[in-house]
């Protein structure tokens, strides 16, 4: 989409014909912040389109001027301006006398810097507002979809959009996508289809995890540099970590609690046995890697526990790692003591 400019005077002359040769006042329609002018007429994109269609017929306009209007196109019809012009309106301004041709932007978002993006965003917002009250389906039942990537979108928009801005678009798209499929309006479907990535086959669906032939659910947990490989099976509450009992492996009570926290919060301590190996990192890291591993293995047996486990903080991987040391620093942030020469 290319934002273009068209000579407004040219357009007007085309529309109004001879009437325009009389002195016609042209109000500015392209203020960054439109301000009301007494008795002024605003020109909309439809006027431009109308003018363009006329010009096309006469072959007077170069193809370079053809512009694709944004989604924010107004539906207003043409207005016969000459009928409503007053004496005051036709008094030429200083600016008009200075410049014979005055160019105005097509899109009202022209001065935002990235008109295409803002137009798209406004259109999506309008769509979201319009269908806000339609019923939605739970997020986990929504068919997986991949939107266009930022790079693909940038190529289409012709201007680079920051990732955070693009996220605003995809957030709205995600919201529109959870509308009940049977009630999905056609215009939403069209918009979503436009934003979808071309290769939807590449959508990765999460592999459904099931218990193995021995009745074990497997889960891998990580925290800092620790890795826990956990097997959870139905049993009577025995826990073995690296072949040792819980108290033998973890001296701190807090670490022991962390390791079996998913079982404690869901009140499943006497329903399952845990057999895990854990290596790397320190004791606390190992304990928290086990939290994640046990939770994942437990969800293989009982997927419905996921919300409860999430509330207990057992589902999300804690991605924090040790901060790197920097040159000139003693540690990550510590600076050497100042010494006078």
């Amino acid at each position: 989409m290319v934002a273009g400019l068209v000579s407004l005077r040219h357009c007007c002359r085309t529309i109004l014909g001879e009437a325009f040769n009389t002195r016609v006042a042209l109000p500015r329609a392209s203020f960054p912040h439109p301000r009301p002018l007494a008795g002024a007429r605003s020109f909309t994109i439809s006027h431009v389109q109308q003018a363009r269609s006329i010009l096309d017929d006469e072959g007077e306009v170069n193809d370079d001027w053809i512009l694709k209007t944004g989604t924010g196109t107004s539906g207003q019809g043409p207005v016969n301006i000459a009928d409503e012009l007053t004496e005051e309106d036709i008094t030429p301004t200083w600016a008009e006398q200075q410049f014979a041709v005055r160019r105005v932007p097509v899109s009202a978002s022209y001065f935002t810097g990235n008109a295409t993006f803002v137009d798209n965003l406004l259109a999506l917002r309008a769509l979201q507002r319009k269908y806000e009250l339609l019923p939605t389906i739970p997020k986990d039942q929504v068919p997986p979809v991949k939107w266009k990537t930022l790079v693909e979108y940038n190529a289409l928009a012709g201007k680079s959009v920051s990732a955070s801005k693009f996220k605003q678009l995809t957030n709205i798209l995600d919201r529109l996508n959870i509308i009940e499929p049977t009630l999905m309006p056609q215009d939403v479907q069209d918009v979503l289809a436009w934003y979808k990535r071309d290769t939807q086959g590449a959508v990765s669906t999460q592999k459904e995890r099931t218990v193995d032939e021995f009745g074990r659910g497997y889960g891998l947990g990580r925290r800092k540099t620790s890795v826990a490989r956990v097997y959870v099976l139905e049993g009577d509450g025995q826990v073995y970590i690296n072949g040792k009992t819980l108290a033998e492996h973890f001296e701190r009570l807090h670490d022991r609690e962390s390791a079996i926290w998913p079982l404690l919060v869901t009140d499943r301590i006497d329903k399952y046995n845990v057999w895990a190996t854990v290596d790397g990192g320190g004791k606390t890291g190992q304990a928290e890697a086990l939290t994640l591993g046990v939770a994942r293995a437990l969800m293989v047996h009982e997927p419905a526990l996921k919300p409860a486990l999430r509330r207990a903080g057992c589902v999300t991987r804690d991605h924090r790692m040790v901060e790197r040391k920097k040159p000139g620093h003693v540690k990550a942030r510590k600076m050497p003591t100042w010494v006078k020469r």
Binding site: G237, V239, L246, A247, L253, I260, L264, I269, D270
Partner: peptide
């Protein structure tokens, strides 16, 4: 339930149960 929890957390060690 409390007994089971304490037993699991302490691996049955009386010192850890008191702790």
């Amino acid at each position: 339930g409390l007994i089971r929890e304490k037993l699991l957390l302490s691996s049955g060690l009386p010192k850890e149960i008191v702790k």
